[in-house]
């Protein structure tokens, strides 16, 4: 805790594993809440989907020291366990996020930016979505931008990810007044306004889990 010599260390595969574990924990804990968010503007399954998916991720977590391989395994598990819209979208996120890091044992802060940007590009393409459409992207994109800015300012991975998580939280909240233009919520038209997007919420939780995991392993 007081020892900060490692605070600039790279993000290890172990940290990534902890991230996934923490994600699974928070998604299990918030399962009912996420499903509740998916109820007025969706089909009331997002919490169930994410919990099912990340439980499977943890159960099959590879202990390889290869970050790319770990992320790819996560992607394949999510794709085959989540279903719904969020399954292929999160699957694509992790698939594309991990691609540049095959064989790499750790990520530098700049790698984190690449990871986010590549993952987001995949989600945008797969879902034909842009920011402002009230989707998971509205948490992911502000996070990536905050991350990039913090890294450019020379912040540590821990600090930069903290900024990213805060931005994701803001982005998540910013989905409340949006009218959905993608996914099930778009069917409601104006009635989708005044509800927080479930996918943006799960994305925030996962990004916050990353910030915490890296903070813990860096101590």
């Amino acid at each position: 805790m007081s020892d900060t010599t490692n605070s600039e260390a790279a993000v290890s595969a172990a940290a990534i594993r902890l991230w996934l574990q923490k994600s699974a924990e928070v998604l299990a804990e918030k399962r009912a809440y996420l499903t509740e968010l998916d109820s007025p503007i969706g089909d009331a399954d997002h919490g169930n989907n994410m919990d099912r998916g990340f439980k499977a991720v943890v159960a099959t977590l590879s202990d390889k020291e290869d970050v790319g391989a770990v992320l790819k395994a996560v992607a394949m598990t999510l794709i085959s366990k989540v279903g719904g819209a969020s399954g292929p979208l999160y699957g694509t996120f992790f698939l594309d996020a991990g691609k540049p890091f095959a064989g790499k044992a750790a990520l530098e802060p700049a790698d984190l930016v690449t990871m986010f940007e590549d993952g987001i590009a995949g989600v945008k393409k797969r879902g034909r979505a842009e920011p402002g459409m009230k989707t998971m992207l509205d948490a992911q994109i502000p996070a990536a931008e905050a991350l990039k800015a913090a890294v450019a300012e020379g912040k540590s991975a821990v600090e930069a990810l903290k900024a990213a998580a805060d931005a994701a939280e803001e982005g998540m909240k910013a989905t409340i007044p949006m009218q959905a233009q993608r996914g099930r919520a778009s069917y409601l038209g104006e009635r989708s306004i005044d509800h927080q997007d479930p996918g943006a919420t799960s994305s925030y939780l996962i990004i916050r889990a990353l910030a915490e995991a890296v903070a813990e392993t860096s101590q």
Partner: peptide, 9 residues
Amino acid sequence: GQTFTSPTP
């Protein structure tokens, strides 16, 4: 798929 959830690839 699961109830009201699309199947997986």
